[in-house]
């Protein structure tokens, strides 16, 4: 999977309440509607700044807090193609893989907002085209790549009628 887009930088400990406020998640299952409110407590106009394929980038412990899957879904439906962070909170990480939102744990300190990035997901390589730098990340386990390539665990399940590690 090859991803390309410009970076939007956020800080450390971005919790799920910031990603999508709890007050919206109980109201609707319409993800396109939720996506309009993505990150709005940190940047009220964030949604309008996204070009499809853009990449969200953050520091440590991205997605900490509640288990709301509306967090990765709001990001995914806002047309962000991938989240890079120096570390992720574990429930967010699971939810991202399960819903088909690529996530990569890597050193994000040198990436700035607006940098053009290219990501080779299977290899775990992030290329900062603007700065002419290459960041090597820990590649995702093949099982997770499989789920992402299937389009999330729901589609994986539709295809195999079960959870399968080795297919």
């Amino acid at each position: 999977m090859l991803l390309r887009g410009k970076a939007h930088k956020f800080g450390d400990d971005i919790n799920t309440d910031y990603i999508i406020s709890g007050k919206y998640k109980f109201k609707t299952l319409d993800m396109n509607e939720l996506a309009k409110h993505v990150m709005e407590d940190l940047d009220p106009h964030f949604y309008s700044k996204i070009t499809p394929g853009d990449i969200l980038e953050a520091g440590k412990n991205f997605g900490c807090g509640s288990s709301r899957e509306q967090a990765p879904l709001a990001i995914k439906f806002s047309k962000i193609s991938c989240v890079l962070a120096s570390s992720f909170a574990r429930i967010f990480y699971r939810n991202a893989i399960n819903t088909g939102l690529p996530v990569i744990e890597c050193d994000t300190t040198g990436i700035e907002s607006g940098d053009e990035l290219k990501i080779e997901l299977e290899k775990g390589v992030v290329i900062n085209i603007t700065k002419n730098e290459t960041i090597i990340a820990q590649p995702l386990p093949s099982f997770m790549i499989k789920i992402l390539n299937d389009g999330g665990v729901v589609k994986h399940f539709q295809r195999y009628s079960d959870l399968k590690f080795n297919v």
Binding site: R94, N98, V153, V154, F157
Partner: peptide, 12 residues
């Protein structure tokens, strides 16, 4: 876990 994990758990 999240909702999709819950769905997989319910289904399997």
């Amino acid at each position: 876990v999240g909702s999709t994990d819950l769905a997989v758990a319910m289904a399997s």
